[in-house]
């Protein structure tokens, strides 16, 4: 068994255990921390596939920015107490059964596919920052600029949504 296979199974087990921790823990803060573990495991997978740029971006954007935003919101609302109302047990069972059914159907459909046994290429340089940067700034300049407009509109939208209530209260 090679070292990459051992690392793959270790990271997969870490990701799945973290994902189960996200949906199983009562306290939202523990859910956020489990989700950070999942993101680090996925970044490890990216490094294993030689996609180093995406690994770093994944850590910076997801584990660094988005999860801190979630933690801020949870702590600002003081939600670390277990205040979640209990859902009907039959609804929970129905949700779990439908999710597992979807997983079984998809696995069964894809397990015997012809292309499922294609061995992945190792040691390619497409995931390095140089080649991705060249592609991004040569062929994808327009979507890149449009995404800045998207960020601007998201920022203005977030400020407007967050501000509206306090403005009416002052009035």
């Amino acid at each position: 068994m090679e070292i990459t296979h051992i690392l793959f199974w270790f990271l997969s087990a870490l990701a799945i255990a973290g994902a189960i921790g996200v949906i199983a823990s009562k306290n939202p803060i523990y859910s956020v921390l489990c989700l950070v573990i999942v993101f680090f495991a996925i970044s490890g997978h990216y490094i294993l596939m030689n996609a180093q740029f995406l690994a770093i971006v994944n850590i910076i954007v997801y584990a660094g920015a988005i999860m801190v935003l979630f933690l801020f919101v949870i702590m600002l609302m003081n939600l670390n107490a277990e205040t979640e109302p209990v859902k009907n047990i039959y609804m929970k069972m129905a949700g779990v059964i439908s999710g597992l059914t979807l997983m079984i159907v998809l696995v069964a459909a894809l397990a015997h596919s012809e292309n499922a046994n294609v061995v992945m290429r190792a040691g390619t340089s497409i995931g390095l920052t140089e080649s991705l940067g060249k592609a991004l700034f040569n062929n994808y300049v327009v979507p890149f600029e449009i995404s800045s407009v998207l960020f601007l509109s998201a920022m203005i939208g977030a400020i407007l949504i967050g501000k509206k209530d306090s403005a009416t209260e002052i009035k």
């Binding site: 799945i16 997978h45 999710g99 046994n117």
Partner: peptide, 18 residues
Amino acid sequence: MEIKWYIFLSLVLFCIGI
């Protein structure tokens, strides 16, 4: 490493999310 293990891992994570 075959591609199918990554497909299965992604499927499991997706279904846990669902």
